[in-house]
């Protein structure tokens, strides 16, 4: 009990004194996750809208694929991308492995199906008069789609936030593609996973507190959106 309490007070100390190492780790986490979720939104939201509105052959297959990807463990995505980006892999020449960009790619792959899937259900649940109203007022299909996006903005935001929650808290991709390099690719989750095995419990705890706070805020915000 004493051990936990001293570690806790040390952890809080690290946070309140804005410890450089804690800040840099939190910064790297936010940088990669935010960039990844931005890319995932650019890809996933239009994909979700298209899947929600269009009938095409193979749609069912795409939906199944999307659901599979969504529940795929992050280490499996990490594994596949590792194979692609490693020196022996087809994209090895890009020298991306163990860089923040590799993590961003992995997290984008992780978040895109989530964003697309949530967007799809938002679109399915949207008032079906939105599109027809926009069209009868003279909008083309893209303009109507844009209006649909505006009308369902809270749902779409929830989709994006759900994706963000997934990437900020995942370890597999960050560890396998980033490599936990201090000050470069060390994120909150990889640090927690690996620094603790160094006996740096207070440091891990400090990051855990920050991560928990971020996830808590995200969920509060999500709750707020859903009850609007």
């Amino acid at each position: 009990m004493d051990y936990l309490l001293t570690s806790l007070s040390a952890a809080i100390g690290l946070i309140t004194q804005l410890n450089q190492e804690v800040l840099s780790t939190v910064g790297i986490s936010l940088y990669t996750s935010l960039t990844a979720i931005l890319l995932a939104s650019v890809l996933g939201v239009p994909a979700g809208i298209a899947l929600g509105l269009k009938q095409f052959t193979g749609r069912r297959l795409v939906l199944t694929l999307l659901n599979t990807l969504m529940s795929l463990p992050s280490v499996v995505i990490g594994l596949l991308l590792f194979g692609m980006l490693s020196r022996q892999g087809p994209l090895g020449g890009w020298e991306l492995l163990y860089t923040p960009l590799a993590m961003i790619i992995g997290q984008t792959v992780l978040a895109t199906p989530i964003v697309a899937n949530y967007t799809l259900s938002v679109i399915n649940g949207a008032d079906n008069r939105i599109m027809s109203t926009a069209m009868t007022l003279g909008a083309g299909s893209l303009q109507s789609g844009w209006q649909l996006l505006k009308e369902t903005r809270f749902g779409i935001m929830a989709a994006v936030i759900a994706g963000f929650g997934r990437v900020i808290g995942e370890v597999g991709v960050a560890m396998m593609l980033g490599g936990n390099i201090r000050g470069f690719t060390r994120t909150m989750t990889t640090a927690i996973a690996l620094e603790t095995s160094k006996g740096e419990f207070a440091f891990g705890l400090a990051l855990g507190i920050v991560l928990m706070t971020i996830v808590l805020l995200i969920n509060l915000f999500l709750n707020l959106l859903q009850h609007r």
Binding site: D127, R129, I130, S132, T133, T136, L137, G138, Q147, K150, E151
Partner: peptide
């Protein structure tokens, strides 16, 4: 050139 107003119209938010 043609506009429809439905019985239960939808207004944008």
């Amino acid at each position: 050139q043609i506009t429809l107003v439905e019985q239960a119209p939808y207004l944008f938010d």
